[in-house]
Structure formats: structure tokens, C-alpha cells
């Protein structure tokens, strides 16, 4: 780690510094929030109508044992919640971060002040956590309209979905810190984010996949995020929930440290 500026006040200064970076994003968001809030309600509505009801009607009702004894609509809803958080968090970690690194050089401007690289990272992650919070709250509201949640435990889906988003944000910020143009991002979505969306238990249980692919899916954060979110919404929290939670926390922690290193290497020359 590079020189620590105010050793005795490191923790409080880390929070205060990150809060400024978050504040800046909120200031910008004040002008654009309407569109994104609208989207937060529209996305679940579209998926649940088209796939949950439309496609779900073709799937034996009363729930197959594979789906854990629930309707397809109920199975799908929480899965889409976790996946949407992954997608939004991933997007927020690519182009906007790259823009602040090189196109608009916001970070260069901020690093001329007493703020440091870890403030940038924690601030951006806090911002993405805020986005996940508002998104998943709206999503949960729509799920409730569809009568999907089974108990107040469903509220735990919100922190679980936030954590899922962050577990994607940190490694993707690390990736963005190494990019000199945006061509890698299209590949990231095509070869990582979208396949995970399809194969990490959102649309069907991972157990339906061949063993080898099942293991790959289980190694990614989305699988664990889906497990927690679905467990909370349907009140069927698996006994393995501490493992899912620990996996997401460790994954976030390790990739955040890597992101800080790579951002520093990129921004401090």
C-alpha cells in the first residue's frame, strides 16, 4: 500500500472521503433518476409478464419438484432480481468508470485533492450499492404485486441482491482499470455477464446442467446470489446460506483489494 496520509484517522477519513465520491454521483443522479427508477419497475414487470406468466403457463403448474415445488413465475421472479442487479452493477462498473479514468478524467481531478484511490473505489462501490438498493426495493415491490414473496423474510432479498451486484462491480472495476478503450466491455457482456444470466440458476435450477457446467456455475457469484435471493423471497432459505454469504463476501473483498491496486497503478504514475 502506498503512503497513508492520516494514519490516526484512517477509518473515519476513508468513510468521509468515499462519501464525497458518492455525493458527487448522487448530485449527477438528481438529474437522471426518473429514467432509472422507471426502468427499475419496468424490467421486472416485463420479465414476469412475458416469461413468468407467458412462458410459465406452458410449464406444468403446481410446480415440478425440480423447481422446488413452486410455480415457474415464483421460481423466476427472485432469480431475475439477482440477475438484474448483476447486469446493472456490471454496466455501472464499465463505461462510467472508464470515462472517469480516461475520457473525462474525473479521477485525475479528484486525486489532486486530499482524496486517495481507495476513496474513489469505496465511493463508487457505495454508489453502486445505492443503485442496487433502490433497484431491488422497486423489484421487490413488483414481486409483491404478483404475490410472490411468502413472508417478511423476503426483505432480506434486498441486501442479498446488493451484495450480488457488488460482487460483480469490484472485479469489473478492476478490469476497467486495465483497459485503454471500451472494446473489452462488449466481450465482457457477451462472454461473461450474459452467459451467467442464462446459466446461473435464474431460469432453471443449475442441477439440470451437466456436472462439469454445474461446477463452473457454482463458482460464480451470481449462483450464490440467486440462491440467497430466492431463499429469502420464497422463504426457502437453504441450510447452506452461510456458505453462499461467505462466498460473496470473500469474493467482494478479494476483488476490491485487486481493484484498488489496479486503479492505483493506472492513476498514479
Amino acid at each position: 500500500m502506498a503512503a497513508i496520509a492520516v494514519p490516526n484517522r484512517r477509518t473515519s477519513s476513508a468513510i468521509a472521503g468515499a462519501a464525497r465520491v458518492l455525493q458527487r454521483n448522487l448530485l449527477v443522479y438528481r438529474r437522471t433518476w426518473r429514467g432509472s427508477v422507471f426502468g427499475s419497475f419496468l424490467t421486472p414487470l416485463l420479465y414476469l409478464t412475458a416469461m413468468g406468466i407467458g412462458l410459465g403457463s406452458l410449464i406444468a403448474s403446481g410446480g415440478s419438484t425440480v423447481l422446488g415445488g413452486v410455480d415457474y413465475l415464483h421460481f423466476l421472479g427472485p432469480g431475475i432480481l439477482a440477475s438484474s442487479c448483476m447486469q446493472t452493477a456490471s454496466f455501472e462498473s464499465t463505461y462510467p468508470i472508464m470515462g472517469k479514468i480516461s475520457w473525462r478524467r474525473n479521477y485525475e481531478a479528484i486525486l489532486a485533492t486530499p482524496l486517495q484511490v481507495h476513496h474513489l473505489l469505496i465511493g463508487e462501490l457505495s454508489w453502486i450499492a445505492f443503485r442496487m438498493l433502490s433497484m431491488s426495493s422497486a423489484f421487490l415491490f413488483v414481486l409483491t404485486v404478483f404475490g410472490i414473496p411468502r413472508s417478511p423474510l423476503a426483505l432480506l432479498a434486498i441486501p442479498a441482491a446488493m451484495l450480488t451486484g457488488l460482487a460483480f462491480a469490484a472485479p469489473i472495476i478492476a478490469f476497467a482499470a486495465t483497459r485503454h478503450n471500451d472494446s473489452g466491455f462488449a466481450a465482457l457482456f457477451r462472454f461473461v455477464v450474459n452467459p451467467l444470466f442464462l446459466f446461473s440458476g435464474t431460469f432453471f435450477p443449475v442441477s439440470q446442467l451437466p456436472d462439469a457446467i454445474e461446477w463452473v456455475a457454482a463458482a460464480t457469484p451470481l449462483y450464490h446470489g440467486v440462491a440467497l435471493v430466492r431463499g429469502a423471497v420464497l422463504d426457502t432459505m437453504p441450510a447452506t446460506w452461510p456458505l453462499h454469504l461467505a462466498y460473496l463476501l470473500v469474493f467482494l473483498g478479494v476483488t476490491a483489494v485487486i481493484a484498488e491496486r489496479l486503479l492505483r497503478r493506472r492513476l498514479v504514475k
Binding site: 496520509a5 478524467r105 485525475e108 489532486a112 485533492t113 486530499p114
Partner: peptide, 25 residues
């Protein structure tokens, strides 16, 4: 600057060669 960067920066004003104003504000 090696050990007191943040304290120094607090008392400096920097106008970089290329403007890096916040275009979203």
C-alpha cells in the same frame, strides 16, 4: 510528498495542462 501527500494537497491549487472539469455538473 512521499509521506504527507494528502496534507500537501490540501494546501495546493492545481490547474492541469488539460482541463478535467466535471462535465456532468
Amino acid at each position: 510528498p512521499r509521506t504527507q501527500a494528502a496534507q500537501i494537497k490540501a494546501r495546493l491549487g492545481v490547474v492541469p495542462q488539460t482541463d478535467n472539469l466535471d462535465a456532468e455538473l
